[in-house]
Design a protein around this nucleic acid. Structure first.
Length: 587
RNA sequence: GGUCCCGUAGCUUAAUUGGAUAGAGCAUCGGAUUUCGGCUCCGAAGGUUACAGGUUCGAGUCCUGUCGGGAUCACCA
């Protein structure tokens, strides 16, 4: 049995035997022992004082005695105040290592047959992706990977906001100023090209507004805004020319997005388009009206009263019968359930929509939708720059494509300075630089817990030292390099029973990997994996520095350490993969 | 104004969900290589966990209040 599980089980038994008190195994408080103190795992005995009617140190002593006698893998103990520090038999660790060494996908949980849908990215089609999207995409991607590793059948989806006044604005500007330009004719990424016309639109609108104000007609609407509105009406009327232009320009954007997604290393199982879903949800509102979940005002608008959930009254259908944003979301949720019958849905959306999702989920609960209990809003803080918030109107956004180019470029420059990979082909070097640069960027963003806002300093995002992606990659490259030198080795390590503290620390971390995955899924927090993989890399570097591997004192020790090194390499690769980070073989 | 989120070392952050002396990285200062790759390792310094109360064996974590920062409160999406 796995060691921490074993300790929980045995503590539970011991408490029953000694004090006739029942503790559930998960409720046994068990931590790794602090570094300065002797021992491997620590049991907190305070919770047993009432049942035992004894002082904590006495209980610790009695439990320690019992466990040492009854459990083979526990070789001894010490007590400090109310803490019982247990020593694990050295033989346990070599057995543990040889057990997992050949395991496929070590740390992954077996399939649980449950389905989860993760929605992320979900951009508008009027401008390219920026740093904010990057955080969203990285969170969504790693969350979906973590759920897969936790045994879930996982689907990745996004819903693209491809209709509405914003895209009409880009269209108007292109009609006026475009002169037939295309991504091909301009050699420009489609999403960037469309984004430029959106900017042109905004500039034009601003100028017209200023002119109107100068002429003392400040209350009038700028002509170009009227044109955009007309275009939206035409779109809704299915005007063929408008639809054609809309399709063409959105097509440019999608091609651009695809390239960005590819560079970020992400993909989707299904894409929903608002132009196809914006009419959904109305039926549900009708049904809800019949069940008195909603109510109708005199003007014909439909509302829901959520005051007893500490929310407000919320409009769900306009007086003219058309839907609002939340109506669509209700409809899309149902459509998604028809597609996947998922038990859990995770919406990766920024925290400015916290209120919206509270309302949405509350409504779906009241409608008694079968998937309502599994809804989760993975809310994350904004990404801010040192000089303040990003504002597209002020041109202070950090473009996703530029950012990626930049980090890879920096990785390249620093690598050339060191000259470690100069002997490789140009292509392979390029691939290594790409992996390093992307690792730096991704790790820098994913390591902070989602709900906190990120202060994004471009300089720090390409750090390769300290707690960074490349630091972890370097530890992996070391494992790879040692193993290459080692060639074949004798993996029989059963008579290696003198594990060093550095080795035990590594093994305890490796043992924890499956727990970390489960925790990250339970808390919807990929940063737990990011912090874990750093700890593992750091611990390996120390081991590597302190202890000889190839020149170990015995064949058994060498076999043990090489197997350990190999296993560390596997776990590093696996954990980084959950974050969407690839490892290079050299760097 | 109501509601929600955040406040930890100069900076960026962690804390096994209420457990021991709050742990890292950057920056600063000082060390380590006849060795499997120095993008490494070791050490020093740096903290009244915004503040004030409370709950208990025990609080960065839970409760109340105060201060500071942000978000949100559309027949927009």
């Amino acid at each position: 049995m796995e060691i921490t599980q074993l300790i929980r089980t045995e503590v539970s038994k011991a408490v029953k035997a000694l004090y006739d008190y029942s503790v559930d195994e998960p409720d046994v408080l068990l931590n790794p022992t602090r570094k300065e103190i002797e021992g491997d795992y620590t049991v907190v005995v305070f919770p047993f004082t009432k049942a035992a009617k004894k002082a904590p140190p006495v209980i610790a002593e009695e439990l320690g005695n019992y466990l040492t006698e009854h459990v083979e893998d526990i070789s001894g103990y010490t007590t400090i105040k109310g803490f019982l520090n247990l020593n694990v038999n050295d033989a346990y660790w070599s057995k543990f290592l040889s057990d997992i060494a050949t395991q496929e996908n070590y740390g992954y949980h077996t399939s649980n047959g449950r389905k989860v849908v993760v929605e992320f990215s979900s951009p508008n089609t009027n401008k390219p992706l920026h740093l904010g999207h990057v955080r969203n995409i990285l969170l969504g991607w790693s969350m979906s990977r973590i759920f897969e590793a936790s045994g879930y059948d996982t689907k990745r989806v996004q819903i693209i906001n491809d209709r509405g006044i914003h895209i009409c604005k880009s269209m108007v500007a292109w009609q006026k100023f475009g002169e037939g330009r295309t991504p091909e004719s301009m050699s420009r990424k489609g999403d960037h090209l469309v984004g430029e016309y959106y900017v042109m639109y905004n500039n034009e609108e601003k100028e017209q507004r200023a002119a109107l104000e100068a002429a003392d007609n400040g209350d009038d609407e700028p002509a170009i805004l009227q044109e955009a509105r007309e275009l939206l009406l035409k779109w809704e009327d299915n005007d063929s020319d408008t639809r054609e232009l809309w399709k063409t320009m959105n097509g440019w954007v999608y091609t651009g997005f695809d390239e960005t997604y590819k560079n970020l290393g992400v993909n989707f199982d299904k894409i929903y388009y608002e132009s196809e879903t914006y009419l959904l949800g109305k039926d549900t509102i009708e049904k809800g009206l019949e069940k008195n979940i909603f109510y109708k005002k005199d003007d014909g608008s439909v509302w829901i009263d959520l005051e007893d959930a500490k929310l407000d009254h919320k409009l769900v259908l306009r007086s003219d019968g058309t839907s609002v944003y939340i109506t669509q979301d209700i409809g899309t949720a149902e459509e998604r359930y028809r597609d996947y019958e998922m038990e859990k849905s995770i919406y990766v959306v920024g925290n400015e929509q916290d209120y919206h999702f509270k309302v949405l989920f509350e409504i779906l609960k009241r409608l008694e939708e079968p998937y309502a209990e599994g809804l989760y809003h993975l809310s994350y803080g904004m990404v801010e720059l040192p000089e303040g918030k990003m504002k597209s109107r002020e041109g202070t956004v950090v473009d996703a494509d530029d950012l990626m180019t930049e980090v890879v470029q920096v990785a390249k420059e620093e690598s050339l300075e060191r000259g470690d990979v100069g002997s490789l082909s140009e292509e392979r070097q390029q691939e290594i630089w790409r992996r390093i640069g992307m690792a730096a960027l991704k790790y820098h963003i994913i390591r902070v817990t989602p709900r906190k806002k990120i202060l994004f300093d471009p300089k720090e995002s390409v750090d390769i030292q300290g707690q960074s992606g490349p630091f972890v990659q370097y530890a992996y490259v070391r494992t790879h390099s040692v193993l290459n030198k080692a060639g074949e080795w004798n993996a029989d390590m059963t008579n290696y029973t003198t594990a060093q503290p550095q080795e035990k620390e590594l093994l305890m971390l490796i043992r924890k990997y499956g727990d970390v995955i489960a925790d990250a899924a339970k808390n919807y927090d990929p940063s737990l994996v990011a912090n874990y993989v750093y700890d593992l890399a750091k611990s390996f570097n120390k081991f590597y520095h302190d202890i000889p591997i190839l020149k170990a004192e015995s064949e058994a020790a060498k076999g043990f350490r090489l197997t350990l090194t190999q296993t560390v390499g596997k776990v590093l690769t696996s954990a980084l993969d959950l974050l969407g980070i690839e490892v290079p073989e050299r760097m």
